[in-house]
Write a protein that binds this DNA or RNA. Sequence first.
DNA 1: GCATGGGCCGAACGATATCCGGCGTGGGCC
DNA 2: GGCCCACGCCGGATATCGTTCGGCCCATGC
Lengths: 173, 173
Amino acid sequence: MPENVPLDTVDLRILRVLQNDARITNRDLAAAVHLAPSTCLDRVRRLRDAGVITGYTVRLDAGALGRPLQAFIAVRVQPHRRPLVAEFVAHARALPEVRAVFHLAGPDDFLVHVAVPGVGDLQRLVLDEFTARPEVSHVHTNLIFEQWDGPPLLPPVSPRASPPSPARSPRPR
Amino acid sequence: MPENVPLDTVDLRILRVLQNDARITNRDLAAAVHLAPSTCLDRVRRLRDAGVITGYTVRLDAGALGRPLQAFIAVRVQPHRRPLVAEFVAHARALPEVRAVFHLAGPDDFLVHVAVPGVGDLQRLVLDEFTARPEVSHVHTNLIFEQWDGPPLLPPVSPRASPPSPARSPRPR
DNA sequence: GCATGGGCCGAACGATATCCGGCGTGGGCC
DNA sequence: GGCCCACGCCGGATATCGTTCGGCCCATGC
């Protein structure tokens, strides 16, 4: 729904800071972007209302939670029609081992990102939850050795945007 | 580093709530899990110190940020040796379009999750940033139609854990 | 020059985070 | 069986914070 909301430099800085620590106090966030707390609150609320910020969440260590093994399971669904697709997605999303489901364009229709305690659980998942389903025509599994985040999800911000100049100009529309 | 930290039902409930809204006040979080605010603060701090909680972040809408197109780029690196692998990962992670990098066991060595403004950017990324590199032997791109989150990253919690019984027993070790 | 809209700010009030001392329970040890 | 210790939990107190509100100031359009 939200498409290409106009963001200025201050918005981007806010998002960058929040992405690094979403539980920062509004006061500290305001200081970090050189705004008054009240103004900063306005900005954040606007970003939420605009749909840019869709929520706040906690980053968890899957290994510490007893699920150190992660993998991508590629799945082909045949026939590849809406009812079957929807059903498959619903089924996959409901599995507690599933972290994310991607519907792809390509030879494989889906990529299912899973986190499990051990190899046995992975096997069970593939055999009982995927290949056992009639609409699933093909499955292959890729173990994840290691993973890394990319940079914060932001257009490059010019580094000169630091000085606390009031700059009381209208925001881009 | 953190491996299989013991978690009780209350911890799991805390994580579930935080995963749904990481900016909830400690007071409300405490109420949601039937604890005193001070005790709840202790719990959360312990989860952070134990490495279960690795941080708090904001969920952003890539489309609203002007990058509605997402894809997985599968990459083969040859020869597949540590120095080249490290170099490739560093390069990929530094690209602003990259959301995550996965090192895989399988025919493809890496899966790079990217978000871009349009098809042209995707093409540029593949040609200039991946196939142009000498260690990259093969690249193929899968567009992401749609994606969904799985359930909260938690072992199933028994639903009976709601009543506010003091239950002043020692936590599992 | 004047009216208008919007962004920004500061003060104030209510709510919150956080620390601390103490209590009660359960388990280990003798 | 009885004692001691460790630990989880709580409630109160203080400093800090979130949030609202009214008003200022600049930029724009007429």
